[in-house]
Write a protein that binds this DNA or RNA. Structure first.
Lengths: 158, 158
DNA sequence: GATAATGGTTATCAGGTATAATTATTATCC
DNA sequence: GGATAATAATTATACCTGATAACCATTATC
């Protein structure tokens, strides 16, 4: 590339301007996750799903009858934020809210037939995406990666 | 905990409700990064910095004189979104916008004395945070983690 | 010199995350 | 058994991040 000849612009030509930041795993992880998230969002768009609506659907199908508070806890989403997600899935006819007979405050979430069907196709999409982003790694590396992420989260959660 | 006796609630008691999702590295990474991000935000709050303002400050100090577009590219932030970040750092007297003599459209970003000072204290805070979250890992594991994240990002950006 | 491209800006929007407050219901405890 | 506390879901709100379109001034291209 062309180099600047004034003394102020001494960077961004040869070395990476964010060299210091790249020393931090947190920064590398953020950049990595942003790329993964953007790519997955593109692929889920075909199914009109986002990461969160996808995740919620998976958990509801796997745990038919769980309550909203349980779903919120499973996904680490605050209850207020989960409401709109459940609203969206219900509006699309993928899950249903049904009263829990033993607790009239709570709603049990159950998937519809359409929800169960989308579950399988969406799972396939995400599995393919996962295979794509892990293509350059060995099973051993992936195992180390997974363990490391778990360890880091534990430390960060204190 | 207490178990439900109606047939609908068959989960979330013994097994993890998000078991399927935990099979995905993307999901594990999201959960991990959220924890790291939240923890770091708490620690940077004392310096009145966020991850993005911190990152921008670091890059400007390391690359005095770079232009906003270069900073945006270095951080993978869209130019419009960078404006408010530069505004904030400038308003706080941490960096300065100065006209580039050879290109009157562009601004060269340079740190002030206060900016350089905050650079060092903030870097210390983040380094400590980094040490904390990596405490459970060996150097070898961290190296594998870093390489894996880079590989994944490359595949996702593909 | 007309046209295209670039640097910075404004405006706007969608999405994710967090908190406070409200209502209805259930659990606790004196 | 009745007052009080806790819980499930909701509404409203706010902040941060990320993305896009449109604009102005300036520079590069042809």
């Amino acid at each position: 590339m062309t180099s600047h000849h004034d003394i102020t612009a001494n960077a961004a030509d040869t070395v990476q301007a964010d060299h210091t930041l790249r020393g931090f795993i947190g920064y590398v992880m953020k950049r990595c996750f942003n790329s993964v998230q953007a790519d997955l969002a593109r692929e889920l768009e075909a199914l009109d799903l986002r990461m969160l609506t996808f995740s919620a659907l998976i958990v509801v199908v796997d745990n038919a009858g769980l309550r909203q508070s349980e779903l919120a806890q499973a996904l680490s989403v605050e209850r207020p934020n989960l409401v709109v997600i459940v609203d969206e899935l219900e509006k699309r006819g993928l899950i249903k809210r049904t009263q829990v007979p033993t607790d009239r405050r709570a709603y049990a979430l159950t998937p519809t037939a359409a929800g169960k069907e989308l579950y399988h196709t969406a799972l396939k999409v995400v599995q393919d995406h996962e295979a794509k982003i892990l293509a350059g790694l060995t099973d051993e590396q992936v195992r180390t990666l997974r363990d490391a992420l778990k360890s880091i989260q534990k430390s960060a959660d204190g």
